[in-house]
């Protein structure tokens, strides 16, 4: 992991976002959620997006995955710009883990059904073996295979959600506040899991969080967002040494470390 925590950009860029605008609604109702966001994430890097609620950080992830439909600018994955309509192959490359594990699993589908369907959609044939492997990968084991979401704790649900995201063997994992709905002890488990998975599968992470400490733990570089704009992009090491230049970043830092 230390090898990739270089901070500077090396190698090819796995995900590149340039002049991204995202908006909701039309005419007078139009709300600009993201304005002119640009950043690059190298292969194997993990990149953080930090900001308060409503700053547009989650919206960037939704635009990358195509869940937010109204956007302009360039989004390129592995050097290839993506269009407004995503091909099926796109979802083999990019996957997302949602914030609230209580809302991201279908209440009537068992773990087995969730993972089995995902594998089926990605065109795998050896579904049984893969479901077992996925559950192993996220530290759940076969015991949990036939349970329904209401029989799982928050942390276990989030593990299932991570397994689902990993099912298609993606290269980029977008993490939308994956631990903010969890207790701190469970958060530690999930963050460790994410660290391990990245090392094992050579994943590229983009993590959104309001918690500077969590982003600092997982990511090597981060972008700070405020009012729909990226105000600063910097290395986490530089942040630790309090070399933030933008007053808002300094503010966040004060609130996170204290004084």
């Amino acid at each position: 992991m230390t090898g990739t925590k270089t901070g500077t950009m090396t190698g090819t860029s796995m995900l590149s976002v340039k002049d991204l605008d995202v908006w909701f609604g039309h005419g007078d109702d139009r709300v600009d959620a993201v304005q002119g966001a640009s950043f690059d994430v190298a292969k194997g890097e993990s990149f953080g997006l930090v900001g308060e609620s409503g700053s547009g950080k989650s919206t960037i992830l939704r635009a990358i995955t195509g869940l937010a439909k109204d956007w302009s600018g360039t989004i390129a994955v592995d050097g290839e710009p993506v269009g407004h309509k995503r091909a099926k192959s796109f979802y083999r490359k990019v996957q997302m883990v949602f914030q609230d594990p209580y809302a991201s699993l279908h209440p009537r589908h068992s773990v087995d059904a969730v993972l089995g369907e995902t594998l089926h959609l990605h065109g795998f044939k050896d579904i049984d073996a893969r479901v077992v492997k996925l559950l192993d990968d996220v530290g759940l084991g076969n015991r949990f295979r036939f349970r329904y979401p209401h029989q799982l704790s928050g942390g276990q649900r989030q593990r299932v959600a991570i397994a689902r995201a990993l099912a298609g063997e993606p290269e980029i994992l977008l993490l939308d506040e994956p631990t903010s709905a969890l207790d701190v002890s469970v958060q530690a488990e999930i963050l460790n899991l994410l660290t391990d998975l990245r090392a094992e599968h050579g994943l590229t992470y983009v993590m959104v969080s309001h918690d500077l400490a969590v982003v600092g733990h997982i990511c090597a570089r981060l972008a700070v967002m405020k009012d729909a704009r990226v105000v600063e992009i910097m290395d986490v090491d530089a942040l630790r040494k309090r070399r933030a230049t933008h007053p808002y970043t300094q503010d966040l830092l004060r609130n996170s470390i204290g004084a």
């Binding site: 002890s185 958060q187 530690a188 460790n192 660290t195 400490a213 733990h217 986490v236 630790r240």
Partner: peptide, 20 residues
């Protein structure tokens, strides 16, 4: 102690967090 140690800290980077 376990709860306190499982918190990630920006000023004290760690490879892995302690699990309760």
């Amino acid at each position: 102690r376990g709860l306190l140690n499982s918190l990630p800290r920006l000023d004290v980077p760690k490879e892995r967090l302690e699990v309760l």
